[in-house]
Structures are given as structure tokens and as C-alpha cells.
Write a protein that binds this DNA or RNA. Structure first.
Lengths: 330, 330
DNA sequence: CTGTTAGCGCATTCAG
DNA sequence: CTGAATGCGCTAACAG
């Protein structure tokens, strides 16, 4: 592999000059520039990014930590992050935290020691305090899907309470009065916020929230299935179920089918997230959007702007959910 | 950030000794080792991996190139790759090729210039010749989901023809005679292989393959929907549809629902891939497995064994599909 | 077993 | 505008 030195020899210039044309910061005369370019071309020269990083103290790589790489959720987000960062010639180094505190911390350490210029974090197990500490550290971080007041400029988030409200509000507008709720796990902020929105919608319509009709799920299909079975076993009346995720809604629908209940004829169901797949579930899922992909993109843009000083970029870090009316509620 | 030098001073030893305890290759006396360890701890020392890479000419990072990061397909694969490599303290750098030749090539260049010690590639747009050229190059590569004879030791693949055979064979065993087929795009090897397996099963049962009952899809939901609509518009008799992917099968089921056709009562459908989601689709999808996650893991193990010389690992690169009988065919 | 000495490939002063 | 010199933090001979 040719080095900058080989190029300089072939071009008959100094090392520094070659470096200059690569980074075209300083002025180089067109003539010498061309000589260097020619030399690089004829040698098939490609800069050694490792050496660049060491010398410049900038790795051009950003670490991305998510809970999981699979599932309908993080894929689209990763796609946007990768695409956005790559057009700016930055590398994406990934790590998965698997929603476990120790693994999330390990991963952060890992990414920092890797010399990432910044970290994009979508973490759930780790405490606010830990993140604030990190925030004060040397490696800049952006949070996706999490809002912490003292570092709000580094947060990209969805207005979950509002989305929770919208979902239930829509169900109420359909005339339902007895509404069950399958939430995410309460240790997660977004699950709490969505539930809160649900409750606000209820009370705004003068309806009391009935804790018996609330099942704490896990955001996954299976949680929805379990939740629905549980609710059905209660022998309490309800005509609609609001689910805090599409995956749980899918599971809930499956559980209904299993019991011979028709959706939406016998029971209405609404999801949350608007992930791609449930559009192909029967019936098509009515839901509220969680534009996770756009949030990923925004986080990447944030990094481009604040770390790599790309001035052509503007970032707006608060996202508003949107209602998607399809066939699973009536 | 403390450097190896700071540690050496505090521990009262030389640079080299510190380096030795880090990489514990050469013998170091327990006493000095402990001194160094203490010094590292009290300084909160963390090695600069960039510098390590430059000096050792080993980046400890492996590049992973897939078509897409989202979808039900690559997520599980990435998860396994990341998990496997990370336990060995290797970094995963990702890139997406989006099934386009130029982007796939760009990504490969990108990953190579990043100094990856090896590349794991799941590419589709690029030619065999290109890959063989790459194979001869300096950076080792492993192929997932692709078999090229001359570099077969670097391939991790599924026996797609066999899976195609299994799916159709099962449908035939159910008594179906008139069977439609929605394939993947013919420029993809796995699509061709699956179709070939389908045809072999047919002919083995003395049934002629009817090209009119074949629709060339795109492996995605929408392709399945389109395909089913097309087949239905033909006014030709068929009682079962074999789909070359679960996503297309999902789309096909949706199209049936739309026309008021019941699956499996009016029409049987079988998929391919055994992705997680369709288990929650109604009816649950009968399918043939494509253990993409295991293949990802195997590719990672291959790298560990062949590049990082981990001897505790054994790799077996050929995977056999398996039939999963559920509810969508009878 | 441990210390000394060169680089790895490049960016970046500082002169000229 | 260009060249020479220095160092990023670490590994890897080579001595001792």
C-alpha cells in the first residue's frame, strides 16, 4: 500500500505538500496540486485512516449504541444514521446494549476507547445520572428517545405523552368508553409517558382510568399476547385496547384470533410506533407514529453539525407523533 | 487521557513493559506486572486503540456490509455478528450497500480504507468476478448468502435449492396439484436456486411447471401482494402458492384477505425464511427456515478463527433449511 | 525478565 | 506557497 511518502517522492514534493492537497485547507499552487494528484492516481494511493486519526486526534467515526440490532425498530434508525454519516465520510461503529445496564456501560466504554468522535445512544437500562456524567466527559453524546433536562440540547426525542394521548383520544372519538391498556414496562420513560397521555385523554373525556384494565407488557409481541389473554380472562367489559407498541398490538390481535374474537368488529385495537410490518397484518393496524428513522437521522445530523462543524445542517430535536387511521379500530 | 508513558513513569518501569502487560504475550514478573496494573488503575488508563492499530497494523475491527440494516432479515444477523465479535473485543463497522452495485463497491472501498482486518459481506448487486478479485486482495473477506466455487472456503451459505424443494415438496405432500410460485428477482442467485428446487419437487411428482403460474417478485411484502393480485387475475386454477420469502407470503396473504379469500381454506400459502414477525400474522405462516442469524454468527466465527487465530472455534459453513409447519397451508 | 530504540502513516507547527 | 522537523500513542525487534 502506497503511503504519503511514496506519493511525495513520485510527485517530487514534500510530505507536507501531499498532506495539504489531501486536506485542501491551505493553499497549494494548481501546478503542484496536479502533480500530487497525478502521483496519487498512478500509485492508487489511499490514505491510511488509522494514521490520520492518530495524527489528527479525530477518528472520523461515531459510535452508535442501541438496545438491539434486530426488531422492526432499530433497523430503520440504523439505516438513516449510517446513510447520513456515510455521505459525510464518517464511519459507524455499532454496539448493542441489550437493555442491560452492565452491557450498556460496557458498550459505552468500548466505543469511547475506540476513539469515537461522538456517541449516539439509544439506551434504556442506564440511569440519568450516569448519562449526565458521560455528558460532562470528553466524548460528546447524543441521546435518542430519551429526554434529560440538563442536557436537553443533546437529546432527540418523541413527544410520547402526546402520542399516548392521541391514540386514546382517537379511540374515545370512536365512541368507546371501556378501554383497556397494554403498556410497556414501567421502568422505561417512554412507556410511562405514553400511559400518562392515555390517562390524560381518559380524564379529559370524564372517564376514570381503571387499573384493572391495565396490563404492563414488555413492548414485544409476546407481551401483547399475554396481555390480551389476561384482559380477556378478567371477564370485565371493554370494547377497545390501546397498546403502547405495534408489536404488542400484533400479539394482542393474535390472541384475539385465537379466542375467535374479530378485530375490529368485536374489539378495536390501536398500536403505537407505525412499524412497517403490521401494515400487512390483518386487519391493518391503526397506530400512532414513532418516527424512529427520522430521529436517527436527526441524531446523525446533530453530530455532523456539532462535532464535524457542518454548517449546512439544521437540527430540530423534538418530534411529534402522528395518527395513522387504518382498519383495526372502529 | 493517560498514556502508556504516564503509566510507565508511575509504575517506575519502561514503556515496553507496560505494553507487555497489556498484551501479556511475553513474560513479565508478577511483581512488576502488579505495579503496572496498579498504576493503570490509579490513572484510569485506557489504551488508545487507534495508536495500537497503527503500530500493530491490526485494527481489531471487522467491516460488515449488508444490503440493508432494516427489515426482518439483517437485524438478527447483525446481532449475532456483533455479539460474537464483541466478546472477542473486536469492533464492528457497518455499511449498507442497498443492493446497488456502486454503493456496494463504495462500501467495500470504504471499509478497506478504514483498515478493517476482515470484511463480512452480504452483497447481491456485485458480480462474482469482482468478489473473486477482492478475494485475491489483501483484506480477507467472507461471503454470507453466496456461494462462489473458487472461494468456497470463504463462503457461508444456505442450501437454497434444497429449501425450495422442501417447501414445494411439503405442499405436494398435502395433495395440491396446481401450485403457483412467487419468486424473488431472478438476478439473485438465491431466488434462482429456490425456484430450481421448486421445479425439481414438481417434476419429481410428475407435475409440469407452468410458467403462467410463476410471478417474479422482489422478496418484499409489496411484491407478494402484487404477485397474488396478478395470479388471481389470471383466472387459472391453483390451490396453493409457494412464496420465496416470508415477506412476500405476508403480502400475498394480505392480497387474499382483500379479495375475501381465506387462507388456508381457500388457498394454501407457504413462505421461506422463517422470520419472526409472521408468526403473529393470521394465519401463522408455514415456512422453511433461513437461519440467517446463525449464518451471521458463523461468519463472525470464521473471522475469529482465520483472522484472529482463535483456535477454540470451529466453523461449518453450509446450512440446511428446515420446514416449519404452522397454519397457512393445508 | 526488562529497557532502548525505531518506526507505523500522517498532520502540523515553524521557517523560509 | 512549500519543505523540514516533530510527535500522536503504541508495538516490536534488539540488546542487555
Amino acid at each position: 500500500m502506497a503511503t504519503i511518502y511514496d506519493v511525495s517522492v513520485l510527485a517530487g514534493v514534500s510530505l507536507a505538500t501531499v498532506s495539504r492537497v489531501m486536506n485542501n485547507n491551505t493553499k497549494v499552487s494548481d501546478k503542484t496540486r496536479q502533480k500530487v494528484l497525478d502521483a496519487m492516481a498512478s500509485l492508487g494511493y489511499r490514505p491510511n485512516t488509522i494514521a490520520q486519526s492518530l495524527a489528527s486526534n479525530c477518528s472520523n467515526s461515531v459510535g452508535v449504541l442501541v438496545s438491539q440490532l434486530d426488531g422492526p425498530f432499530y433497523g430503520p434508525m440504523m439505516t438513516e444514521i449510517e446513510t447520513t454519516l456515510r455521505t459525510a465520510n464518517k464511519h459507524v461503529i455499532i454496539a448493542a446494549g441489550h437493555a442491560q445496564e452492565s452491557q450498556e456501560k460496557d458498550s459505552v466504554e468500548f466505543l469511547i476507547s475506540r476513539g469515537c468522535d461522538a456517541l449516539i445512544l439509544d439506551v434504556e437500562a442506564v440511569s440519568d445520572e450516569y448519562l449526565i456524567e458521560l455528558y460532562k466527559g470528553k466524548t460528546p453524546i447524543v441521546l435518542i428517545n430519551r429526554y434529560i433536562e440538563v442536557m436537553k440540547d443533546n437529546c432527540v426525542f418523541l413527544e410520547n405523552e402526546r402520542g399516548g394521548f392521541m391514540a386514546t383520544d382517537y379511540i374515545l372519538s370512536l365512541g368507546h368508553k371501556d378501554i383497556a391498556y397494554i403498556s410497556g414496562p414501567m421502568y422505561k420513560g417512554d412507556a410511562r409517558d405514553r400511559l400518562q397521555g392515555h390517562q390524560r385523554a381518559l380524564s379529559q373525556h370524564g372517564i376514570m382510568f381503571d387499573p384493572a384494565l391495565w396490563y404492563e407488557g414488555n413492548f414485544r409481541e409476546f407481551g401483547g399476547e399475554e396481555g390480551m389473554r389476561h384482559l380477556l380472562s378478567l371477564n370485565k367489559k371493554f370494547t377497545a385496547v390501546v397498546c403502547a407498541s405495534d408489536q404488542m398490538a400484533s400479539g394482542a390481535i393474535a390472541a384475539c384470533m385465537e379466542k375467535g374474537l374479530k378485530v375490529p368488529d368485536d374489539i378495536s385495537i390501536i398500536g403505537y410506533d407505525n412499524i412497517p410490518f403490521p401494515q400487512y397484518i390483518y386487519p391493518k393496524l391503526t397506530t400512532v407514529s414513532n418516527p424512529i428513522n427520522e430521529m436517527g437521522k436527526m441524531a446523525a445530523l446533530w453530530v455532523l453539525k456539532n462535532i464535524y462543524h457542518d454548517t449546512n445542517v439544521k437540527v430540530d430535536c423534538s418530534f411529534t407523533p402522528k395518527l395513522y387511521v387504518r382498519d383495526s379500530a372502529k
